[in-house]
Computed example of a mutant assay.
Amino acid sequence: MSLNETMTGLMNTIRTMSGTTDKLSVDDATRITSSAGQWGVRVPNLISDSSNEYQLVQETTNNTKQLYSGAAKAGIKYSLHVTVKDLSYDTLLNIGVYDQNWTWLEGINGTETIPAGGEGVLHLNYTPKQDGFFQWSIMQRDSKAINCQYKCAMLNEGDYAPYTSSTTPYTVDELANRLEKLENKLGGVVKALPSVLLPVRGCAA
C-alpha cells in the first residue's frame, strides 16, 4: 500500500471518528486525535443551522451581519471559526457580549483579518467573565455594506475543533464503542497516531 493510500485511509477513519467530511490537514488530524478525550471526539456545534455549502451574505444598512446568538457561561472558553470568500472589504469576526439582562458589555474582535477579495478561515476565542449572552458576526473594519460568502461556521466549547454540522455529542457508550472499532481497524495505531503524523505535518488527504 502506498503512503498516499495509507494517509487517505487514516484520514477517512479520523473523519468518521470526528463527524466531519471535509479534507483534513495533518495538523487537523493531530488535533482531533490528541484532543479526543477533551471534547468527546465529535464536539457539538452550537450553531445549529451551520452548513458546509457556501451561503451568500449581503447587507446594505450597516457593517455587520449577525449570524448567531446564544447563552455564554462564565469561565468557559468558546472557539469560533468560519470559512469565508468573495469578500468586498477587509473582514474579521466579532463577538458582542451582553449580561443576563441583555445589557451591552463589550465587543471583541478577532485578531485575524482576511483582505478584500481573499478567502480563508477566520478564528476567534472568547472566555466570558460572567454568565450572559453573546452574538457573533462577520464584520468589516470600515462601515461598509457586507458582501461575502461563508460556510462551515463552528462554535464550540473548548479549544478549536474541526467543523461538524452535528449538534449532539456522543454518549459515553457510543464513544467507547466508536473508539473500540477505530482501534481494531487501525490495529492499535490510534494511540500513537499524533506522533506518527507529526513528521509529515502540513499535508492533507
Rank of each mutant, 00 (worst) to 15 (best):
S2N: 12
L3W: 13
L3P: 09
L3G: 12
T6E: 13
G9E: 06
T16P: 00
M17V: 12
T20L: 09
S25H: 00
V26Y: 00
D28E: 06
I32P: 13
A36N: 13
G40Q: 13
N45D: 02
S50C: 02
S50E: 00
E53D: 06
T60W: 04
T61C: 06
T61M: 07
N62D: 15
K65A: 14
L67Q: 09
Y68L: 03
G70P: 01
A71W: 08
A72I: 05
A72D: 00
K73V: 11
G75L: 04
G75S: 03
T83S: 13
D86C: 10
T91Y: 11
L105H: 04
T111H: 03
T113A: 07
H123E: 08
L124C: 08
T127L: 04
G132A: 07
S137D: 13
I138K: 14
M139W: 15
Q140E: 15
I146Y: 03
Q149D: 04
C152K: 15
C152W: 05
Y160S: 02
P162V: 15
T164D: 07
T164C: 08
T164W: 07
T171P: 07
N177H: 08
K185Y: 12
A192K: 09
L198A: 03
P199S: 01
C203N: 03
A205K: 09
